[in-house]
Design a protein around this nucleic acid. Structure first.
Length: 411
DNA sequence: TCTGGGGTCCTAGGACCC
DNA sequence: TCTGGGGTCCTAGGACCC
């Protein structure tokens, strides 16, 4: 058989379901998982009881409250979700080691080499669902198809608790009337462009001359054309050889917009420090520092600076970020969001460590890391960071854990 | 009802080198 | 002194994903 067999597993209302599982009082009630409501936050996830009210991820808390006043708002606990996620992926690996972690609640499995037929694949899908519900008390939707594109579309067809198989010979029929925005990779802008060309469904997309798509969208044009035909040759990556991390960063929306330069500076320092802790924890260092700013009118921009040495110290990152800030024509505008990220990363080898001559700053970093590893994250920190908003630290702890889990590809 | 946070990939223009 | 072309790196920003 030439056809591949790919499964896509998509957990149902993942964060909200975990909250309902751990707290029986939340069951059968509309649950909305969000960030700390004291900060400016949005909806992270909605339970199936909340979805009919129109609650969607990314929506502001105010709007969610207006649409569904009776909803229970729960502050998300990312550490708990990461832990659950890890257990689920371990279950999946029992069915195929060719398991690719796609996000915290999604994975692809390839069983082409071990599964004789699509009928047998359906049984695998059922077994996976049973294992996850029995061992984790959570439901998922499983999609099965001849490639990742179709498997993902299939898992979306039946929610919650679905199991959908799309056979190769059914692909054309399934795609014919499917809206283009249901394709992974077609967002609002792309949808608008495609509509302007008279393309509304995947069927339209598949029939459209590839040469014109290529002219309009470059490389993406070809990919779009293939998507319209249901073709996708991208492999399912073993989670062991996931691509290396390209960048690491943190952004933070301030509790209130500010033009206070001391506060801006503290936040830049604090974010630099947090990024550095993650870099060192995962043995990375990088040469390019990026400062991201969002003004109160939501105008967002970034500026990069590349140096000819590798950075993993919060103070060094801060120095570059501050240099970038001083070069910006800021004019005292109120700032809503600040972000720091480091790219041009390399993994530090043992040899690199041994060759490294520590500066005083780096020596202090190492000592702080060791203390924090032993007694808990951010138990010790630089004074400049202490002055920054205390509550900024808490979400970072959870994010750090996320980062640890996902950037190391050790799920 | 005002719009989070973590990422990746692609494009395009400029600088620089050979 | 003026010129072309290829390759690479850097930077900024847009679009997209969950």
């Amino acid at each position: 058989m030439n056809n591949r067999i790919v499964l896509h597993i998509d957990m149902n209302a993942f964060f909200a379901s975990i909250e309902q599982k751990t707290n029986p009082a939340l069951r059968r009630r509309p649950v909305i998982v969000c960030g700390n409501p004291e900060t400016r936050t949005v909806v992270s996830a909605a339970s199936y009881e909340a979805k009919p009210f129109g609650i969607k991820a990314g929506m502001s808390i105010g709007e969610a409250r207006r649409l569904c006043p009776q909803a229970v708002f729960v502050i998300g606990n990312l550490a708990k979700y990461v832990d659950t996620s890890r257990r689920i992926f371990n279950i999946l690996r029992r069915f195929s080691m060719k398991t690719e972690v796609f996000s915290i609640d999604e994975a692809f499995l390839e069983i082409t080499d071990t599964c004789p037929s699509y009928d047998a694949a359906l049984k695998v899908g059922q077994s996976i669902k049973k294992a996850i519900v029995t061992e984790m008390g959570l439901t998922c939707s499983v999609g099965i198809g001849p490639n990742k594109l179709i498997a993902k579309l299939a898992s979306d067809m039946q929610k919650p608790d679905g199991l959908v198989l799309v056979l190769p010979e059914q692909v054309g029929l399934v795609l014919e009337d499917l809206r283009i925005k249901d394709l992974c990779g077609v967002g609002r802008q792309m949808e608008k462009h495609l509509h302007a060309l008279g393309i509304y469904t995947c069927g339209d997309l598949g029939r459209y001359p590839v040469s014109i798509l290529r002219r309009h969208f470059g490389i993406i044009g070809e990919i779009l054309h293939n998507m319209g035909l249901g073709l996708d040759s991208t492999p399912v990556h073993y989670s062991e050889d996931e691509p290396p991390v390209k960048s690491m960063g943190h952004t933070h929306t301030l509790a209130r917009d500010t033009a206070d330069i001391a506060e801006i500076r503290r936040n830049i320092f604090s974010l630099s420090e947090q990024v550095a802790v993650r870099l060192r924890h995962d043995n990375y260092c990088g040469r390019t520092v990026c400062l991201i700013l969002r003004y109160s009118d939501f105008f967002t921009f970034s500026r990069h600076l590349t140096v000819d040495y590798f950075l993993d110290s919060g103070y060094d990152i801060y120095q570059q970020a501050w240099k970038i800030f001083t070069r910006i024509d800021w004019q005292g505008r109120a700032i809503r969001l600040i972000g720091i990220s480091v790219s041009n990363l390399v993994r530090k080898t043992r040899q690199l460590y041994l060759l490294e001559e520590f500066t005083n700053t780096q020596a202090v970093d190492r000592v702080m890391d060791r203390i924090n590893e032993k007694y808990g994250e951010f138990r010790i920190m630089r004074a400049a960071m202490m002055k920054s908003e205390r509550r900024l630290v808490q979400p970072i702890l959870a994010r750090g854990l996320w980062a640890k889990t996902f950037t190391k590809g050790n799920l």
